[in-house]
Amino acid sequence: MKTNDVILQTTSKVVFFMIVLFAIHLFFAGHYNPGGGFVGGLMTSGAIVLLLLAFDIKTVVKGFPIDYIILVGIGLLFAVGTAAGSLLFNIPFFTHAFGDVTLPVLGKTSLHTAMLFDTGVYLVVIGVTMTIIQTIGESE
């Protein structure tokens, strides 16, 4: 399915970054505002799907030489690792910790281990969605 739609290709290149940025914003906003790993991950994969529609699979794979299956594994490790990490401190599985940290540029920021867990979710969602779409696309 070789397409050559110049307008779509040009706009999608720009829009892609906007969507990804928005997705990352959603992901980080998750703890306080609507958003989080699921939406962030889905939105990011939505952006990649847009590229897939504009270009063909080969170009996109060249642009993102990522093995999405491995991404799924990394995501699951993140999630389990965060949950199991609390065992090291002798507190029950899945106990999260949080605290405020003052960073040099950004000022006062609160950090959560929940964020790490959400990162796992984010990666798994991207990994699975892209695995599905890419394998289906490649099988043509």
């Binding site: 703890h31 306080y32 699921f38 929940a114």
Partner: peptide, 14 residues
């Protein structure tokens, strides 16, 4: 307990 403001997200991750 979880220092979050989005309840849905906090329920999900915590």
């Amino acid at each position: 307990k979880a220092a979050g403001k989005n309840m849905v997200n906090v329920i999900l991750v915590d």
